[in-house]
């Protein structure tokens, strides 16, 4: 099966099996098969197996969709979960208040994932990761203002950040707020909130002003620190911890969904 540009190659035979040839190419393959009985036999068998596989799976395709896969039911279950989570988070809810009602979800509709600029998110992730490495090992002064003065802490950080900031309650994941600090970040100020679990493991939530269009989560791993970062409405957010990606993701998603779920619940109720 070697030769000039018109020679039949294996790709042609596969396309023939899949019924994806037409015109001259189809005629050429048919002519070739007419002359090569052994190849023809093999191609016919492959066609038959392809058809058999489709046939065996036809009944599955035709089955009615079971109720648990109805989108309305899945959406309702999601809302219930989010509300439960929001309920559990109670008082100090995780929300960065980003303009009521509209929500991030609506704001992000149509965002082109491939075209969004990666750079600002990466910068936020790097800043967050650096801040994490600097302060998470700190024994004497891990935070500037501790959680006992939470109201003062948040008021202070919100003023410096130019954004109303509420501390996420990560108690659901076993993390309690230790406190926070102000840092230089980008062209302005950045806020770092630090959390600790019963085992002394720490994670941080980092927020600063950031340029660039809204993005999806970006994951970054630096040394021991994993970071999920995203940008929304002029601010960059990052959640950093010495956790494997799959453990950190639900925490980052909870921050994100807590907000989306809350506005959703408000709208529905």
């Amino acid at each position: 099966m070697t030769g000039g540009p018109d020679a039949i190659i294996e790709d042609d035979l596969q396309a023939y099996v899949d019924g994806r040839l037409d015109g001259a190419r189809l005629a050429a393959v048919e002519a070739y098969l007419a002359q090569h009985a052994e190849v023809r036999e093999r191609v016919v068998l492959e066609q038959r197996q392809r058809a058999a596989l489709r046939g065996q799976l036809e009944a599955k395709f035709a089955e009615p969709i079971p109720p648990r896969l109805w989108i309305a039911n899945i959406q309702a279950a999601r809302r219930r979960r989010l509300r439960r989570w929001t309920g559990a988070a109670a008082a100090g809810l995780l929300l960065f208040t980003v303009g009521a009602g509209t929500g991030w979800m609506a704001g992000r509709r149509g965002t082109d994932l491939a075209a969004t600029t990666a750079a600002p998110t990466t910068a936020v992730a790097q800043n967050a990761s650096a801040a994490y490495r600097t302060f998470v090992v700190e024994v004497a002064h891990p935070v500037e203002v501790d959680a006992q003065h939470q109201a003062h802490l948040l008021q202070w950080l919100s003023r410096r950040l130019g954004k109303p900031l509420v501390a996420p309650d990560l108690g659901h994941f076993g993390y309690r707020l230790m406190g926070g600090r102000l840092l230089p970040g980008g062209r302005g100020a950045a806020a770092q909130l630090m959390y600790e679990d019963a085992g002394g493991r720490r994670l941080t939530v980092y927020v600063r002003a950031a340029e660039g269009s809204e993005t999806a989560f970006r994951f970054q791993h630096e040394g021991e620190a994993s970071t999920f970062a995203w940008i929304d409405q002029g601010f960059g957010f990052a959640v950093t911890g010495a956790l494997p990606r799959e453990e950190l993701l639900p925490i980052a998603e909870a921050v994100y969904h807590g907000f989306a779920g809350d506005t959703d619940a408000v709208r529905k109720n």
Partner: peptide
Amino acid sequence: ADDLVQDTLERALSRWAFRRD
């Protein structure tokens, strides 16, 4: 199989806004 499809749909809904139109 339906568990997997359910996971897929849940994931799709949670990423719905990030989907390219």
